[in-house]
Computed example of a mutant assay.
Amino acid sequence: MRIIFLSIFFLILLSACNINNEPTIIKSDNPDSSNSQPELVEDEDEVQDNEEEVEEFIDFPLDDEQITVNLKMVPILSEYLNAIEDRKSVIEEMKLNRPHEKAEDIYLLEFSCQNHSCSYLLFNQAKDQEAYLLADLAKLSNVIMSPDNEKLLFKFNREKSLPLPLTNLVMIDFENWERLSLGNNTSDANILNYNWPLLKINWLDNKRIAVEKPAVIEPTSDRLEEWNQEETEERKTINMHIINN
């Protein structure tokens, strides 16, 4: 069921139709100390003809603040929960944190986890109407800040029947709140989207990164196993750059 609801929206921008200018997330500096787990909260508002509309929120208590997510403004999360019978236990398993200490308004939600693979939604408290679904059926491996402190590079892994996990990279410009595409000028054009295991990753400058991968012809189980057994574990470095949209 999770694949039906999540894969349709995989790696697209989620834009809520914010007619009433409602924020997607609300930050409070006074967390509820009585609750240490995420909690579903319902709020009944009176609408036309004296009818009541129930709005749903999830409160996430953090160490120094509380973050409230408005489910109406995050359709993919709302649809996912509507398909779950035991919503309470599923919500309690969700995790929301800042992915990087230098990005104070950015929050990453980990949810719908199965066999150590999860889905990830990125929120910007300064941008009320939008959220990004960064990955599905994956595990966050690393988050690296750009030298200008304006972009975040997320590394996600997927475990397959290979000696090494396969990787995808997602870059977000959180100052302008947009997803950035990556490309390279080599024959290794398809190293992203979980096609290759990617090893060490570094920023070269504000627009370029260097990515290391095993120096094998193709990422098959036999070739990666042989590479793992080599003393040198030779790597190939590929420089990637931001593609202007």
Results as ranks from 00 to 15, higher is better:
H100L: 03
M240Y: 12
P31G: 06
D136W: 12
L224N: 11
I26P: 02
V74Q: 09
I26K: 07
N35L: 04
L77R: 02
D43M: 12
N18C: 06
I91H: 09
D205Y: 02
N185H: 06
I12D: 11
P61I: 14
E51M: 09
N70L: 07
N70E: 12
S141D: 10
S78M: 15
A16Q: 14
H100F: 06
L96Y: 10
E92T: 06
Q37E: 10
S221P: 03
I58D: 09
T24N: 03
N244V: 08
K139N: 09
E46R: 05
K151T: 04
L6F: 09
I58M: 13
N239Q: 12
I67V: 14
K127H: 08
E55A: 13
T24W: 00
S117L: 12
E65I: 15
L6K: 09
S161C: 02
P75E: 11
D59N: 15
P214A: 08
H100I: 00
K88S: 10
T237F: 05
D63M: 14
W227Q: 07
L81H: 06
V143N: 02
D64E: 15
P38A: 11
D63K: 15
E130K: 14
L199P: 00
L40M: 09
L162I: 12
N190A: 10
N50R: 13
L121Y: 04
D64S: 11
N149W: 01
D148H: 00
P61L: 15
S7P: 03
F57T: 11
E110Y: 06
S78L: 14
N228K: 15
D59S: 10
R208W: 04
P61F: 13
F111E: 01
A103K: 03
F111K: 00
N206S: 09
D148N: 03
P23M: 02
E104M: 00
S36G: 00
Q229T: 08
L62M: 08
L162D: 09
I76D: 11
I19V: 04
V47W: 11
A135Y: 13
I201E: 00
V54Y: 13
I191G: 04
I67Y: 10
L40Y: 07
V54M: 09
P61V: 11
R158D: 03
A138G: 06
D32Q: 04
Q48T: 13
M1A: 10
